[in-house]
Amino acid sequence: MATHRSRRLRKKLFVDEFQELGFELSFQYEEGQRDDAIDAFIKRFAAIVESNDLVYSGCDEYGLICLARRGSVSAEQRAMIEGWLKQQPELAGFTVSPLIDAWYPDQPVTPPAP
């Protein structure tokens, strides 16, 4: 059954044309990594995230990145974070998810209107 909602309600619920996208991250650190090295990595990571108008919600092993204001993370911002992570010596590996609905992760991503 289709749900018909007013534009105002769709905006409040962040659905349909108001869907906001983000992406999930998980980190795997090099074996034997010291706590101070991980702390330094997290501080550098926070600086690069914030300087690109993004926010990270999570812990030092996994989390979600969203836009710091209303709206969606772009594919370019996602690729920039992924490229930066590839250069970090503290990481043995990491995963970056495709763009997902930041409010309702189980919902499919709605293609932008033409």
Rank of each mutant, 00 (worst) to 15 (best):
I100H: 05
C59N: 15
E20F: 13
A37K: 12
R5A: 09
V49S: 06
V96S: 11
M1W: 07
E90F: 10
E31G: 05
C59R: 06
K12Q: 15
R8G: 05
P108E: 04
E76C: 04
P114V: 07
M80I: 01
L67M: 11
G71I: 05
I38S: 09
L13C: 05
R44F: 09
R70F: 15
D60F: 04
L67F: 07
E61L: 14
G93C: 07
G22D: 00
L21N: 03
V15T: 14
I38V: 15
D39V: 09
I48K: 09
R10N: 15
E90Q: 09
G32V: 10
A37Q: 15
L25I: 14
S74P: 01
F14Q: 08
Q19M: 06
F14D: 12
R8C: 03
L54F: 01
V96W: 04
Q88C: 13
V15W: 02
I38Q: 14
P89V: 02
L64S: 00
R7E: 14
A68N: 11
E17D: 13
F45T: 00
V55I: 08
D35I: 08
D35G: 04
Q28Y: 09
K11P: 00
G83W: 04
K86I: 12
E61G: 12
V49P: 04
Q107H: 15
G58R: 06
A37Y: 02
E76S: 09
E82N: 11
I42G: 00
I48L: 12
I81G: 03
S72C: 03
Y56S: 09
P105F: 13
R34V: 08
L99F: 00
P98Y: 03
D101W: 12
K11E: 06
I65E: 00
T110L: 12
R70Q: 11
A46K: 15
F18H: 08
D36T: 15
L9A: 11
Q107G: 06
P114S: 08
L25V: 10
T95H: 06
P108Y: 03
Q107F: 14
I65G: 01
N52Q: 10
E31L: 05
L91S: 01
L9E: 15
G71R: 07
W84V: 02
L25N: 09
L25F: 02
I65M: 01
L91C: 00
V55Y: 09
P98A: 14
R5D: 11
T110N: 07
Y62D: 10
R34F: 06
A2M: 11
Q77H: 10
A40S: 13
A2I: 11
K11D: 11
R7I: 13
A75V: 13
Q77I: 01
E31C: 07
F94E: 03
P108C: 03
V49Q: 09
L9D: 11
P112F: 01
L85H: 01
G32S: 08
G32R: 09
V15I: 04
T110R: 15
P111D: 02
H4W: 11
Y29P: 00
K12Y: 09
Q87H: 05
E90M: 10
D35Y: 12
A47L: 10
S26G: 08
A113H: 08
